[in-house]
Structures are given as structure tokens and as C-alpha cells.
Design a protein around this nucleic acid. Structure first.
Length: 708
DNA sequence: GGACTCTTGGTTTTT
DNA sequence: CCAAGAGTCC
């Protein structure tokens, strides 16, 4: 490798980049060059004579994979290394070695909506009520089991109470439905791939021969299934290099297991451990705040971020009246930045939940600020797009009944519930798929002549299109749009937006065709199923970026605004009851803060609209952990007035100390966990005997102290 | 079979 | 406040 490239690395980075064989653990803070290490390592390996195709690098998003590919090429690494996400890699493996699994290579990948549809059927098939067993909850439970690589049969044996017995039944049924549809969900991709590798020694061996070097970025967010896949991928040679930061683990709720990175040295006892402590991204002002915040987490290995940049602007905390005021304040600050010559694409706004983008959008339109909302999957959630994709899924995989039922009467073609029921009954009786039954509709005795004719027209249309599924995707989609009747239906209803969206889908398919060596419908569908929000981020356009803190992972911006620092929002209310989840919320905020290079502004609103109602908020407990003082008053005299009205019933001095026993009218007995002196906004965090932990505004809480 | 109204339930984060 | 599902009517 050229010397000038070497010069771009620190001594510790070099250690990880140039150490050749065996396991390497790179444990490092934000902005320390973790991803850079992986990229350079790919280049260095190729430079040392390793063939590109012998390298397998795994990133967290497709976007990150693309970027890594480009950067490695810039370093002179010839193309050919496999760089992708875990999920994409698994798709490839399952397609290639489908004969060793229970699925066929043209399998459909089900989105959450499709998963829920199947789950609903599974619950009903088990003679249970969806009102008692909500499909979303059951999907979550099944997902958790799959992430632990627990198959239905194995779980059935463990199930020993009412709920888990029901879950076992539902899980089994759900899995049966997926198999019948020749479909997998996101978790299956990992689970099936893990079993493929673990249960077929020859296949695993062959892959170990092929991928001689395995590199994994963001290792702190791998779940158990991914951990087992990683282990299997490196089993023969042990050339596994992982990078990560336990403080940036933000996917625990999705099964990410922080102990994967913490126990790496146990799994690979000869591992070389490289620590990267310097931060090249942020000013010391920002790092100090990040440091203070994350120090509040108890379950962590202590580490301090070492700043390398010159001091800059202080971190700002903004108190706003409500979400609109917050959005407008930010809009005017951004306009100021832009008029000072800052490019819009150097500015980002992060929030906890997607719904928070709306007031910002309105404010930006008003203030004429160009913006992009980084939410790639939204496009694929539109009804018309899902309809088109359902057609395509049926064409690629005729076993996909979920997709078939979606489109059989979309647009309306007079095939209603009754007809469908009769076709399904016939299919079941004759042990054929619903699609096959459609094709012989004329033989279904229960159908009248009218329905028979309508079904025949539909079946002929699908059959006709199926003849064209080989090769490029774009012409097929275009033909489908016309022949399915969707185009005519949308035109008739003057659904201009919907037509535009489908045209966008067609253009995107053309790009896919152009960029793919061997385009195929199956591959196209499997790829777009794995598209993520973060993939939509376009750094080249000059727009302010709006995204969730989860989507911000791995990115950096000169100017960052983080909004909604309020109890219930960040930390989110659903995390408040659980100490581990609260710590994850803190890590999430930490991730947000450490994206900022030079300027960071954090805001909260004193009122926020919630389910259509303006509600008083409580400033986030995290704000008090940053080590900076909060702004005292709001700018709005009216609201100030309102606060003064309340001030008379403020408690004069606070008798609360940690662990003190108290009683609350509604929640009952509990112990004080924390008391925050904030004047009129003083809060107490109480762990109630019900198991719940709540943060209450002292002035409304009416707590009764119980002295022992 | 399909369009329409009304009710009710529910809001994280995502591959 | 808003989407989805049930129920009602043509």
C-alpha cells in the first residue's frame, strides 16, 4: 500500500489494518475511525496479495456497504470483495444453497405488514382471538425467538405456561404459513442462514475456503443469530475482524446482544485487541457533554473520549414553547447558518420518533429551507407501490398467497370474498395452491359462470406476464402496470400522486437493471425488501437532513440539532419502566450527540401536542446529565404567566431523598430513586411497588412521605 | 360485491 | 389526531 495512504492512519489504527491473520477486536468510541479501519483493511489485504473475492465485509446498512465499496476503490483496492449487510449476505446464501433448506430460491421476503397478515391468519387458525393475542405483539415474540435461533419445535418443548403454550402453537402455525407461501421474514433470513451453515459442514467449509477474511462493522449491534453466522463464517481460519462500541449499541430491542462484543476475547482467545480512543470528529465541547451523559450508564466499561480537535462553540440547550415554536426556532437558526455560508447538507436534525418530523417540515417549507427526510422505506409502504410489488411477487413466486390475495381484486374486478373463499376451498380439497386453483377455475363446481369468467381473465393476465419474468425488470413492471388494469383505475380516479409514485418505481427499476450484471425479478424483489431508511440519505444534495437518531448511526454532520428532549419522548415512555431500556435510550442520545462535528443544539418544548392535545411536558432527565445549565425561562410571556399561576402550590422545600418510602394516590407505594431540583419543574423519579418506574412533576404528584 | 360511515384502539426505534 | 376494521346499506 502506498505510503501516503499509510500516513492517513494513526499508529493504533495501523495495528488493526495491517495485522494479517487471526481474530482482531477493534473497540473504539465514536469518531475514532472504526469504519475507516475496515475499509483500509480491505485495501491492505488486497495489497498484500489476497484476492478480493476472498474478503467478506459486513456493514450495518446497504448504504454503508456502498460507501465502503467506493472508498476501498479509491484506496486502489480492486473490486470484487463481498461487502454487504448480514441480511443481504443471507439472501445470497439462501438462494445459492436453497436445496439445503426448506425454501425455494425464488422466496418472497415479507415486510412487517405482510408478516402481520400471516400472523393474523396463524392466530385465527389456532382458534385464538386477535384481540387477546395482538398480531404485532406475537410478531415481536416470534422475532425474539428467531433471533435466539429457537425453532417452533424447540420452543414448544420449553413452553410451560398459558401464554408460551399459545405462542408455541401460533409460532408453529405462522412458520407453516410462511413455508406454504415460500416466504421468509427478516429474522428467518438470519435463522435459516445460521442453520444452513451450522448443519451443513461441507457448505460451511466451502464458504470458509471462499471467504478467507471476514470483517464486521458495528459489531455491538449484532444479535445472537448474526453472532452464530459470524462464528460459522470464520470457523476454519479465525480471520475475523470486528469493530464496535458498546456505548453505541442501540438495537437491544431488536435482539442485539452487547455481550457479543464484550465476550469476543472469550470466543477467540488469541484475539488482538485494538483500542481507538481518540476522536477525530467532534470538538472537545461536544465530547465533554457526550462523556458526561454516557457516564450515567452503570452497566458499562468506562472509557473517555480523547478530543483531538480545537475547542469550538459550546453546546446549546434551547427551551421552546411547543413543537411549532421549536421547529420555527430551528428554522431561523438554520437560515442564519445558511446565510453565513454553511451548506444545507452540513446540517442535520435528529428526533426520537418519525412523527416528530412533521412540524419541522412545515416550518422548513415556510422558511424556504431545502430539506430531505431520510425515510427510505416510506416509499415502499404506499398502497399503490405495495400493490405493484404484490403483483411482482406473485409473478416471481406463485406460492405467495399473501401477495395473490392482495391483488386478486385490486383494482376491483368483481372477484369478491365469496368467490375467493370458494377457490380457496377447492385448492385445499385438491391439495393445490390457490394460484393453481385459479388456473382451473372452470373446473370449480361451486363457482357460477360470471365469477368463472372473471377469474379466468385474471388468471390469463397473470400467466401472460409470467412468461416475461426473465431478464430486466423495468419493461416487465411497465407492462404489468398497463395490463393489470392498475394504470387505468388510477387514471380514472385521477390519482396523480399514485401514478407519479409508480413511475418513480419504474425509473428505479431501470437503474437497478443498469447497475446489475444479471438483473432478475427475484433478485430485484429480494433486494428492495432489504432497503432501509438510512439508505435514502443522499449526502450529495444540498439539503438539510431530517432523521431519527437510529437512522443517524454511522453518519456525521457539522451542525446537529436534536429535538424533543422530554420525558416520555427521549427517553421514550415505553422504556421508562426498565433500567436496561433507559440506558439504551441514553446510548441513543449519545449516538445523536456524537454525530455532531462542530455545533450542537439540543432542544425541548414545554408543551407538546400528543394525540391531538396540547400537553405539559417534563424536561428529559438526560438534560441534567449533560453538565450544562438549562435555560431558565421561556420567551413567551403568556406561558410564563401561566406558570406563575401555578407557582403558589409549589412545595417550599423538598423532603425527598433517595430510597425514601412514599405513597402516591394512584400508583400506591414506592421508593424515591431520584429527585431533581428544578424549581417549579422539580421532578421525582419513583420506583413503585407495581414494578413501574415513573418520573413525576413534584408539584402535581402529591406524594405522601412515609417515615419509618 | 362494493362503497360508505362509524367506532375503536393505539402511537418507538428497523433489517 | 388518525388509521384500520366492523357494520350498514345499496
Amino acid at each position: 500500500m502506498q505510503n501516503n495512504i499509510q500516513a492517513q492512519l494513526t499508529e493504533s489504527q495501523k495495528k488493526a489494518v495491517f495485522h494479517k491473520d487471526g481474530p482482531i477486536l477493534v473497540i473504539a468510541g465514536p469518531g475514532s475511525g472504526k469504519t475507516r479501519v475496515i475499509t483500509y483493511r480491505i485495501a491492505a489485504l488486497i495489497d498484500s496479495g489476497i484476492k478480493p473475492y476472498n474478503i467478506c465485509a459486513i456493514t450495518f446498512t446497504n448504504k454503508a456497504a456502498n460507501e465502503m465499496r467506493e472508498r476501498a476503490a479509491l484506496l486502489g483496492a480492486s473490486a470484487g470483495a463481498h461487502i454487504s449487510t448480514f441480511h443481504s449476505l443471507c439472501v445470497r446464501l439462501l438462494r445459492r444453497y436453497a436445496d439445503k433448506t426448506s425454501i425455494k430460491p425464488n422466496f418472497s421476503i415479507y415486510s412487517d405488514a405482510e408478516q402481520r397478515t400471516c400472523m393474523k391468519h396463524a392466530i385465527k387458525d389456532c382458534m385464538l382471538e386477535t384481540s387477546n393475542f395482538s398480531p404485532a405483539k406475537m410478531c415481536e415474540a416470534v422475532s425474539t425467538l428467531k433471533n435466539k435461533l429457537m425453532e417452533p419445535e424447540a420452543f414448544e418443548e420449553l413452553a410451560d405456561d398459558f401464554f408460551s403454550n399459545a405462542l408455541a402453537k401460533i409460532y408453529k402455525k405462522y412458520q407453516q404459513i410462511l413455508t406454504d407461501n415460500n416466504a421468509v421474514d427478516f429474522d428467518d433470513l438470519l435463522m435459516q442462514a445460521a442453520f444452513l451453515l451450522e448443519r451443513n459442514d461441507d457448505t460451511r467449509h466451502q464458504l470458509n475456503e471462499h471467504f478467507k477474511y471476514v470483517l464486521i462493522d458495528e459489531y455491538q449491534d449484532t444479535n445472537h443469530a448474526q453472532y452464530r453466522i459470524a462464528k460459522a463464517l470464520a470457523r476454519d481460519h479465525g480471520n475475523i475482524c470486528v469493530t464496535g462500541d458498546p456505548d453505541q449499541s442501540i438495537y437491544r430491542w431488536r435482539g442485539a446482544d452487547i455481550s457479543n462484543i464484550l465476550a469476543f476475547e472469550k470466543d477467540w482467545p488469541n484475539a488482538v485487541v485494538v483500542k481507538l480512543q481518540e476522536n477525530f470528529r467532534s470538538t472537545p465541547n461536544i465530547l465533554e457533554v457526550a462523556d458526561k451523559l454516557i457516564a450515567a450508564n452503570t452497566g458499562r466499561k468506562e472509557k473517555t473520549l480523547i478530543a483531538t480537535r480545537q475547542p469550538g462553540q459550546d453546546v446549546e440547550i434551547m427551551a421552546c414553547e411547543d413543537e411549532n415554536n421549536e421547529a420555527n426556532n430551528i428554522a431561523s437558526k438554520i437560515n442564519e447558518l445558511i446565510s453565513n455560508g454553511v451548506s444545507a447538507n452540513k446540517i442535520a436534525i435528529f428526533y426520537r420518533i418519525n412523527a416528530a418530523s412533521r412540524p419541522l417540515e412545515e416550518a422548513f417549507i415556510k422558511a424556504k429551507i431545502p430539506y430531505q427526510i431520510v425515510r427510505g422505506v416510506e416509499f415502499y409502504n404506499r398502497k399503490e407501490i405495495r400493490d405493484m410489488l404484490a403483483y411482482l411477487k406473485v409473478l416471481a413466486n406463485s406460492s405467495d398467497e399473501t401477495a395473490l390475495l392482495r391483488i386478486i381484486n385490486t383494482p376491483a374486478r368483481g372477484i369478491g370474498k365469496t368467490t375467493i373463499g370458494r377457490i380457496q376451498a377447492y385448492a385445499k380439497e385438491n391439495n393445490i395452491s390457490t394460484y393453481q386453483a385459479l388456473k382451473r377455475a372452470d373446473r370449480i363446481a361451486t363457482l357460477g359462470n360470471g365469477p368463472k369468467a372473471k377469474v379466468k381473465v385474471f388468471a390469463d393476465m397473470i400467466n401472460g406476464l409470467m412468461k416475461d419474468i426473465a431478464g430486466p425488470v423495468e419493461p416487465l413492471i411497465e407492462k404489468l402496470f398497463a395490463e393489470s388494469g392498475l394504470e387505468a383505475a388510477l387514471k380514472q380516479a385521477s390519482e396523480k400522486d399514485a401514478i407519479d409514485n409508480i413511475n418513480a418505481l419504474i425509473s428505479a427499476a431501470a437503474i437497478y437493471d443498469k447497475n446489475t450484471e444479471e438483473p432478475s425479478l427475484t433478485d430485484y424483489l429480494q433486494q428492495i425488501a432489504l432497503f432501509s431508511d438510512a439508505d435514502a440519505y443522499d449526502s450529495s444534495v444540498d439539503r438539510v437532513s431530517l432523521m431519527t437518531m437510529h437512522a443517524a448511526k454511522g453518519l456525521e454532520f457539522d451542525n446537529v440539532f436534536i429535538i424533543g428532549l422530554e420525558e416520555g419522548l427521549l427517553p421514550h415512555e415505553r422504556s421508562a419502566d426498565n433500567e436496561d431500556e433507559l440506558e439504551e435510550e441514553r446510548r441513543l442520545f449519545f449516538v445523536g450527540i456524537t454525530r455532531a462535528k462542530s455545533r450542537l443544539s439540543i432542544s425541548y418544548a414545554r408543551y407538546r401536542t400528543f394525540r391531538g392535545q396540547l400537553m405539559r411536558t417534563i424536561p428529559s432527565q438526560f438534560l441534567y446529565e449533560l453538565g450544562i445549565s438549562l435555560p431558565k425561562s421561556s420567551q413567551n410571556p403568556e406561558l410564563q404567566q401561566e406558570d406563575d399561576d401555578y407557582s403558589y402550590d409549589e412545595p417550599q422545600d423538598c423532603p425527598f431523598y433517595p430510597n425514601q418510602l412514599i405513597r402516591h394516590k394512584k400508583f400506591g407505594l414506592g421508593r424515591i430513586k431520584q429527585y431533581l431540583e428544578l424549581g417549579e419543574n422539580s421532578t421525582v423519579t419513583v420506583k413503585f411497588n407495581t414494578g413501574q418506574t415513573k418520573t413525576l412533576l413534584l408539584k402535581y404528584a402529591n406524594l405522601e412521605t412515609i417515615d419509618i
